[in-house]
Design a protein around this nucleic acid. Structure first.
Lengths: 343, 343
DNA sequence: AATAAAAATGCAATCGATTGCGCATTCGCA
DNA sequence: TGCGAATGCGCAATCGATTGCATTTTTATT
């Protein structure tokens, strides 16, 4: 049967084969540099491929190979510095290794996260890198991956119940150091604005804070801890509540920089001096924390590097099918700036 | 032939079909809610699908349908507020419409951009949304898309030579307004740190600046314009050069906020007061520009909205195959802050 | 009850690339 | 010159879902 070769369609290996009156198998092998094909034939085939403007159809190849060369990344919000840094690092590594990266954001909603993860499964991603949503409290959608032995890597916000690879920062140590720093600066009564305690990151930060107090013989006062979602908006009522205590704090360890800034602005408007009257530290080293004034002391998390590590790890898993899991804890860095330096 | 049904493999429509002793065609139609299948059969099929934990293999479906339900997005750098906002907006719209989003960053390198774009073509993305690299000066890789009638949308940095959809901000008007604002504040000698002039965005900004000067009867002085890549590092020698002129500027329109901040820090260290001695304005409304002090007057670009619009537009193109191209110019907003307010 | 009409389902090809197995040609060495 | 061993290449099945057309089953009508 003679086929119409001039349809408005992309050239395939069959078109190349017909042109040279050879089989598609040979073309496929030639283009993949299979040693079973002679140099002479390979060259002829590559010449025709160029001439026709042939581009392999990755979809077909993926189907046949049961491999999509795609890594899924799910973050709460793309448009946030830490997460976009992670994505950037992961994309860098993935692209060099020949993988595509598909990205979705959960908006911190469990339902959307579930929908995304299922969609990525249907799309047969070769692996999934995820930082779970604040709201997520069931994990069946993630267990789907681990059960089917599709590599799964958590970063930053991991799920303790699921045994898989994890890349986290040492939130506990970071919180400890930043709290110790406040103590070293002479602050006595240190409050803490904490994030949702179902997330290990925020739980660890609180624990690091409490441990530092304990190690320094400071009595822990429950009323100095407020848990919220650490947004700019929620920072205001939280700091109001703390400052209206009979015995208000003289320093605040904020669970992230966003809420630290919000707190700082509120205090400044009340005429309270930072760091003289109240010391402030944040967490995450958002870009703005360096340039506001007073600049905010904080803990740097290596986002780009986390993304790189996550991608490297998942690619190793995909390609070697190791079955051992590891948790990589990246070090944090204490960055001392104006908001907590009163000595 | 009896097939082994318990391989360690995902269930397919054939497994469902075998279980019910019907054909795979019927299963496929049932799962797609085809009216040709009776309700009773559909229900039985869906029940079995659930029981087996069936998840459609999108790869197979994509191949058959010649549609990947995937939109490619290429940006210079994921990890930059404006671009990650655009991605965030685009993902939002795309996900709701059932599209996946694959993302790559060119790092402003032409070679990487070409490689990315070709890879996306091979992956048969249904459409491509791109902001080209600073370095890019050939466009064959992009013409590939327009020639094959694969929807292509430029955002922010567009290529004039290629006729396709474009979503841009009104850089000219923004630059005009911000310059006019400086003039209104009584600044007389206004310099400009410009970006690479092969990019229309930066060219338009310079032209808006020059037009504003002209309309106000201010003589244009070539020595007050410096072109560089607008990084934090390059800001320093640029401002040094400007300030060492025999007749230095009393205000600077910086091509972006990054370089504006860099300039501000330099001037502050020299004891020059902002905005009293020198007025500064930026462009882009980076998050930090609001919180530094003095806060930076700037032009807000609606990144998130651009992403949404770009996705909406490309999806319309994908699904309706319109052949008319449009350029959507989103309005900019002048945000007046401390760095330029001396009245 | 017979037959037309409508409804439900199945057959087999297709999307494009890959690959195990087998056939054909050339080569090597006695 | 002869015959096993390389070497080079093709056939046909496969990946899993989709769909035009054909066939079977059911329903409606007289």
């Amino acid at each position: 049967m003679i086929m119409n070769r001039n349809k408005n369609t992309e050239p395939t290996i069959h078109d190349i084969a017909r042109e040279l009156e050879i089989s598609a198998s040979t073309v496929s092998r030639a283009l993949n540099d299979n040693p079973r094909i002679s140099m002479k034939t390979k060259e002829k085939i590559k010449a025709v491929a160029d001439k026709l403007g042939y581009r392999p159809n990755t979809l077909a190849s993926n189907l046949r190979n049961k491999k999509s060369n795609t890594i899924g990344i799910v973050v709460p919000l793309i448009n946030r510095h830490f997460f976009s840094s992670v994505i950037s690092g992961a994309e860098d590594v993935a692209f060099k290794a020949g993988y595509n990266v598909v990205i979705s954001q959960s908006n911190d909603l469990a339902a959307k996260e579930i929908s995304i993860v299922q969609s990525m499964f249907s799309n047969r991603v070769d692996g999934l890198i995820i930082s779970i949503a604040m709201q997520t409290d069931t994990f069946d959608h993630l267990k789907l991956f681990s059960k089917k032995h599709i590599p799964l890597v958590f970063f930053d916000r991991a799920v303790p119940e699921i045994e898989t690879d994890k890349i986290v920062v040492d939130d506990f140590a970071g919180a400890f150091r930043v709290t110790q720093h406040l103590i070293d600066q002479g602050y006595q009564r240190i409050g803490h604005l904490a994030g949702p305690q179902n997330l290990t990151t925020y739980l660890d930060r609180k624990n690091g804070y409490m441990d530092a107090l304990h190690k320094n013989g400071i009595v822990f006062d429950e009323s100095l801890i407020i848990v919220n979602t650490l947004t700019s908006e929620e920072g205001v009522p939280a700091i109001q509540q703390l400052m209206s205590l009979p015995n208000p704090p003289d320093a605040i360890f904020c669970g992230n920089d966003t809420t630290a800034l919000s707190v700082m602005i509120y205090l400044r408007n009340k005429g309270i001096r930072i760091p003289e009257d109240v010391g402030i530290v944040g967490f995450s080293n958002e870009p703005f924390s360096k340039v506001v004034s007073p600049s905010i002391s904080t803990i740097a998390q290596p986002g780009f590097e986390m993304g790189q590590k996550a991608a490297e790890l998942i690619i190793r898993k995909i390609e070697n099918k190791e079955r051992t899991y590891q948790t990589i804890t990246l070090p944090t860095e204490l960055i001392i700036r104006e908001s907590s330096s009163r000595k």
